[in-house]
Amino acid sequence: MKGKYSKLLFIILVFIFLYLPIGVLIAYSFNSGSTNLIFEDFSFKWYLNIIKNTDLVNAFLNTLLVAVTSTVISTVIGTISAYGLYKFDFPFKKLINSLIYIPIVIPEIVLGISLLSVYTLMKLELSIYSIIVSHIAFSIPYVIVSVKTTLTSQTITYEEAAKDLGASNYSIFKKIIMPIITPGIVSGATLVFTLSLDDVVISYFTAGPGSNTLPLYIYSIMKSGITPDVNALTSILLLVTFVILITLTIVQSRKIRKEAL
C-alpha cells in the first residue's frame, strides 16, 4: 500500500504547487503593513481601502467593461460565424477555416504588436476601444471552435427534417440550432471572458490614455511592490469565481441526477 500513499502525495504536491502562491497572496491581504514584504499584524483594513484607491477601482471597472463588451460581441460574431462556416459555402471559406486558428496558436506578443501597427497605420486613436477591439480579435476564434464542436452530423439530420416540414431558415436557427449549440456558446463565452480578464500582453500594446486595465495596473506597480489592497481585491474576485464554479458544479450534478431519474 506504500505505492498508494506516494501516489496521493504526488497529487497533493501538484496541488500545493498550484495553490501556494495564491495562498500567500490571500494571507498577505490580511497584513496590516503597507507592503507584501513583511507580515506585521492581522487586519481587514485593506479590504476597506479598496474603494479609496480610485486607480485600482477604475482599472477594475475598465477590465470589466472590456471583458463584458468583448465577450458579448465576440460571442455573437463567433456563434453566427461557426454556424455560417458549418452551413454555407462562400468565397475563401477553406482559407478562413484555417486562418481562424492563427490567433489561438501564434504568440500573444506577435498578435499584440501586429494589431498595434495596424491601428497606427489606420491612424486609429488608442483608447479603451482599441483594447476592446483587440480582445474581440483574439476571442472570436475560441468561440468559433467551442461552438463548432457542438455542430455534428446529427444536426444536419434535424435541420433537414425541419426543412421538410416547411420551417424557415430563421426558425430552424432559433428553434433547432440554438438549443444544440448553447452549451458550446456558454463554454466559449466563459473561456473568452476569463482570457480577457487576465490578458496582459495584448492590452499592453494596444492601451491608450486613461484605459488602464487591472492587469496593466498591476504590471505598472508590480516592481515597486504591490500594495495589499490589490491582494484584497484579488482575494474577493477569487472567492466570487470559486462560488460561481461550485454553484455550477452543483447545478450540473443535480441536472444529471434528474435526467437519470
Partner: peptide, 10 residues
C-alpha cells in the same frame, strides 16, 4: 482564474 501577474508576484 486569478490574474496571472499577481500569481507570479506570489
Amino acid at each position: 482564474l486569478t490574474n496571472s501577474l499577481i500569481r507570479t508576484y506570489g
